[in-house]
Computed example of a mutant assay.
Amino acid sequence: METATGLIFRDATDADVDVLVALIESAYRGDTSRTGWTTEADILQGQRTDPEGVLAVIKAPGSRLLTVERDGQVVACCQLEHRGDHAYFGMFAVSPALQGGGVGKVIMAEAERTAREDWGAQEMHMSVITVRNDLIAWYERRGYRRTGKMTPFPYGDERFGIPQRDDLEFELLVKPLV
């Protein structure tokens, strides 16, 4: 599907894994990520994901890795996972060069529409690191609410990065889709 913004949405395939890993890493880790506003470089080093993690999302039953292209280039992605009456939203990455230009809003709206229409999801759930105040505020402006339900950060599991502080945890954010 192509939007008025020139974005084309499709499900990721095995052939997309390397490009998607590079995109996700560029949006969250290292100096390249500092070009955009979603960087986690000051709180986490190391990797954000790996080819096995991306492939697992692509292959999992009830899961989709929505891939977004513009002018033939992959510029964004997000994970959607069907979990009964709700969908889980994760692995959201927008190319740092496009951040702040409204692309993320369009992708969120498409992800929510997809979860509602394809799966009948009543809510969208996501987990956000609690120290990411700007990011949480961005989601709140899009109708998500903080629940106060916390999950510990997986310290010691470098598949999720190397924490630069000892107070990281995830909070569940929820948005009604109906």
Rank of each mutant, 00 (worst) to 15 (best):
Q73S: 13
Q73M: 11
Q73V: 13
Q73A: 15
V74P: 03
V75R: 08
V75H: 05
Q79R: 15
L80Q: 12
E81R: 15
E81S: 15
E81I: 10
E81V: 14
H82P: 05
H82L: 08
R83E: 13
G84S: 04
D85T: 10
D85F: 05
A87S: 08
A87F: 00
F89I: 03
G90N: 03
G90W: 03
M91Q: 03
F92H: 00
F92A: 05
V94I: 13
V94F: 03
V94T: 11
S95P: 01
P96A: 07
A97N: 09
G101F: 07
G104M: 07
K105Y: 09
K105F: 04
K105C: 02
V106F: 07
V106T: 15
V106Q: 14
V106N: 08
V106G: 05
I107W: 11
I107Q: 07
I107L: 13
M108S: 02
M108I: 15
M108K: 04
A109C: 00
A109S: 12
E110G: 05
E110Y: 10
E110V: 07
A111V: 03
E112Y: 01
E112G: 01
E112C: 10
R113K: 12
R113E: 02
A115F: 01
A115T: 06
R116V: 00
R116S: 11
E117A: 10
D118C: 02
D118A: 13
D118S: 12
Q122T: 12
E123D: 12
M124I: 15
H125C: 12
H125V: 11
S127G: 13
V128C: 10
I129R: 06
I129S: 07
I129N: 01
V131C: 09
V131K: 02
R132H: 08
R132A: 09
R132C: 08
N133A: 14
L135D: 04
A137C: 00
Y139E: 04
Y139C: 05
Y139D: 00
R141L: 11
R141Y: 08
R145V: 15
R145Y: 07
R146D: 01
T147R: 03
T147F: 08
G148Y: 10
G148C: 06
G148F: 10
K149E: 15
M150G: 00
M150Q: 11
M150P: 03
M150C: 02
T151G: 09
T151M: 13
T151I: 13
P152A: 15
P152L: 13
F153G: 07
F153T: 09
P154Y: 12
P154L: 13
P154G: 11
Y155F: 14
Y155E: 09
G156Y: 08
G156D: 01
E158V: 08
R159P: 06
R159Q: 11
R159K: 13
F160L: 07
F160G: 05
F160C: 02
Q164L: 15
Q164F: 04
Q164A: 12
R165L: 04
R165A: 06
D166N: 14
D167I: 11
D167L: 04
L168K: 10
L168A: 09
L168Q: 06
L168N: 09
E169N: 12
E169C: 14
E169F: 06
E171A: 08
E171V: 14
E171P: 09
E171C: 12
L172C: 10
L172E: 12
L173I: 11
L173A: 09
L173C: 06
